[in-house]
């Protein structure tokens, strides 16, 4: 019986992951927008601040992190929106599987199509913002873990606002304060490395945040969806 349940639970996760990845593949243009946004906004920073490498170097890590956060936030809105509109969210809510698992599948797909591309592009932006050499590996590591946290926490916000017509802006308001610890430790990881310190401790804290969000956020999002999707 347990293996049967385990297989069922797994299929809930894997099926939704596969479905969302397939949907993302069919709408490649939409998937690219957060990354394009990420690159475009980083053009604004030298224009707004200064083109001097020495100045940019100081703000590079923080700016890249802020922009990655904003890019994730912009994409968060779409996590449940189209499923809510076409009714497949209702189907998800009545499946026999534990609801957090399909949600975790969707969030994983979201991270693979948003957080991961942002992470992979970030070294290029680091180059453009003249990030010191020591900062690249920590930047990629911290963004990989950090954007996963952002996707997970954002899923709770997306679930809370899914049935609202102007949910996008509200979603940002709800989720932004919860993102602040992530950005603190994300930028600290990079700045520790640039200053020549051991950057693993802040990264480990990001890892702890990731572990906590994997455990808790799908539960909260499931509770939220049960409340909001029927209204």
């Amino acid at each position: 019986m347990t293996s049967h349940v385990a297989r069922k639970m797994d299929s809930g996760f894997a099926a939704w992951l596969r479905r969302d990845l397939l949907l993302a593949y069919r709408r490649r243009g939409e998937v690219a927008s957060p990354v394009i946004f990420f690159i475009m906004v980083s053009t604004l920073i030298p224009l707004g601040l200064t083109p001097e490498a020495a100045e940019l170097e100081k703000v590079a890590a923080g700016m890249i992190w802020v922009m990655a956060l904003l890019a994730t936030l912009l994409s968060m809105d779409a996590l449940f929106a189209s499923d809510y509109q076409d009714g497949s969210l209702e189907q998800m809510l009545i499946t026999p599987q534990l609801l957090p698992l399909p949600i975790l599948g969707k969030v994983t797909a979201h991270w693979l199509t948003t957080g991961l591309p942002l992470t992979l592009v970030s070294p290029v932006l680091g180059l453009m913002m003249s990030l010191p050499n020591a900062g690249y590996v920590p930047l990629v590591c911290s963004l990989a873990l950090g954007t996963a946290c952002l996707s997970l926490v954002g899923a709770v916000g997306a679930a809370l606002t899914v049935s609202l017509r102007k949910g996008g802006l509200l979603l940002s308001l709800l989720v932004m304060p919860l993102y602040m610890p992530v950005i603190i430790f994300g930028t600290a990881t990079v700045s520790y490395a640039v200053d020549g310190l051991n950057w693993l401790p802040p990264l480990a804290i990001l890892g702890a945040m990731f572990a906590a969000s994997v455990a808790l956020c799908p539960l909260a999002a499931a509770g939220a969806l049960r409340v909001t999707a029927s209204n």
Binding site: V156, L160, S163, L174, P177, L178, M180, P181, I184, F185, A188, M209, L216, A220, G223, A224, V227, T228, N231
Partner: peptide
């Protein structure tokens, strides 16, 4: 009903986060 339950969930999520936020900001 939706307003009450949704904001209750958000308040609970916030409660879990407040100690984390405070500690992070102290550290920062």
């Amino acid at each position: 009903d939706a307003a009450s339950k949704a904001s209750a969930i958000l308040a609970l999520v916030g409660t879990v986060n407040i100690p984390i936020i405070n500690k992070s900001v102290d550290w920062w």
